[in-house]
Amino acid sequence: MSPPASNDLSAGGGGTLAVPPLTGGPRIGGGRTARRGLSGRFVVGPTLTGGFVVLFLSVVVLIPLAVLVYKSTGSGWAGFWHQVHSPFAWSALKLTVVMSLLVALINLVMGTAIAWLLVRDRMPGRQFLDTIIDLPFALPTIVAGVTLILLFGPTSPIGINLAYARSGVLLALLFVSLPFVVRTVQPVLLELDRDMEEAAASLGASQFTIFRRIILPTIAPAMAAGTTLAFARALSEFGSTVLISGNLPGKTQVAAVFIYGKIQEDSVTGAAAVSTVLLAVSLVVLVLLNVIQLWVARRD
């Protein structure tokens, strides 16, 4: 039996909050499917809309980020490096990157497993799981922090205390990044044609061979994209780590919390320098994501 009515609600289909659509055309506008707009005839409308869009983006996003980068190098590159290399800044950045890589890796495995379970395993309670997967997107990060410290803090009812430890930070980051891989892999798994798998099975391929040779190559781009998003999210996370990490400089303090501390101390250059590093890594991640999307678009 082929998967029944894959577009009904029970089948889920992800693509929620902040997960760019991966299948069915790369991005908005697609490129090749460009239609001729009405733009030729109505010059005022698009110009006005375009002006508004660019103005809004500039005021809210672009000018602030540009000023931030400018300020971070205000005292020259030497000053910038001095700030970034100061012991606590450096250890915060290192911790953030290492933790984010770890989070990305765990998400790659667990996210794919969850997506698999949601799509392929007709298990009771599947719809419920499918709904709650998005909870980390909907839940305010500080509330996530409070709930996690209640369960895994000093008063833990299950006797696990991860507060003020790096494992606590890891836990918080795993929570907030949970949906990314699930929601990028799930729709691709849903669309996957079962015929090939059945053909392979009839030719004597083992389950493992089928997964490795047929399923994995198809879902690999989605896995890569989801993992990249999870990594980006972990890099930038603030709210959920504030409580459980205890913000011990040099030990459990992540980059975002370090920056916040510097802002509170009115040490703008230090904050701006570390912010710029974080921003640069984020940009690299975004570019990577676009490359993955192009890769997907090519293969279609």
């Binding site: 902040a18 460009a34 707009g37 000023v67 930038s236 603030f238 920056i259 802002i263």
Partner: peptide
């Protein structure tokens, strides 16, 4: 979606930028 203009791809990419920027960095900026 409806218009073709120079810089469209850049605009498309910039709109995703906030996903990757840390909230604290947003505040500072």
């Amino acid at each position: 979606v409806r218009h073709r203009f120079p810089g469209r791809r850049i605009l498309d990419a910039v709109i995703d930028l906030p996903i990757a920027v840390s909230p604290v960095v947003v505040g500072l900026a």
